[in-house]
Design a protein around this nucleic acid. Sequence first.
DNA 1: GTGATTGCAAATCTTTTGCACTAAA
DNA 2: TTTAGTGCAAAAGATTTGCAATCAC
Lengths: 137, 137
Amino acid sequence: MTCVRPFSHAYERLRSAGLRPTRQRLALARLLFDGCDRHISAEQLHSEAMAQGVRVSLATVYNTLHQFTGGGLLREIIVESGRSYFDTNTSDHYHFFFEQSGRITDIPPEAVGLSKIPDAPDGLRIRRVDVIVRLDG
Amino acid sequence: MTCVRPFSHAYERLRSAGLRPTRQRLALARLLFDGCDRHISAEQLHSEAMAQGVRVSLATVYNTLHQFTGGGLLREIIVESGRSYFDTNTSDHYHFFFEQSGRITDIPPEAVGLSKIPDAPDGLRIRRVDVIVRLDG
DNA sequence: GTGATTGCAAATCTTTTGCACTAAA
DNA sequence: TTTAGTGCAAAAGATTTGCAATCAC
């Protein structure tokens, strides 16, 4: 599977999400969006940034991940209590969760047949349907 | 919907899960299993216990919830990062999550048509498939 | 008695916040 | 300039842990 996107248009992405393209945001956007889709925690992204010599604080990584999520550039995935992951793939799809390793991988939408979903109660709206296939040794 | 089970067989449940029926475990088991199925956090259960005059520490509530989960008496539900909920309904079913209020309700299995699921990779096994329907104003 | 269980307080871990400083427009 | 963004260190919140005291068998 080829998934390298050597030019992720980081600058334009930030602009279109209404975010100022600062040094930190540009660097994090490149780490996130150049290359394959990924599932990453704040701590992991911070470590990667440090490893590449990008000076950015952990607090800014957290802020940035939330701003990107708010701007539709990322989607938050919740599979473990006590830690958040962010998915660079914001299109409709589902997830495998490897319980041993904590790894997350995508399940393409066509691999899941979700033929019936209950209606939303009252005046509420379905924002999203998460499907998590939990795997075990 | 009638769902009161005035006698939850707390003592026998603990025994069959291989847990000594101590005062604290019995009290918590009664709070959890007498009455309707519920979705409860450690903090909530601890408050309820206190309100009923049951002396039990928060640490013991956490330990007990995990022991009950390990013994198949409860199932952990993960819908929010940073807080765990436990479900007294351990049979196959799914969940609505009300994002505004943080409330969780059950979706019966027949209300969801899950006609296709991807195979587990490698030598792995599917332990569970979680479906969370996230609701919004 | 003996080993499992409990309570407490401290520790841990992730995430958020307040605020002075810096940088983008 | 002017306002948004950043870094730091402290705070917050949930959960876990170590260990002496207590309880079930």
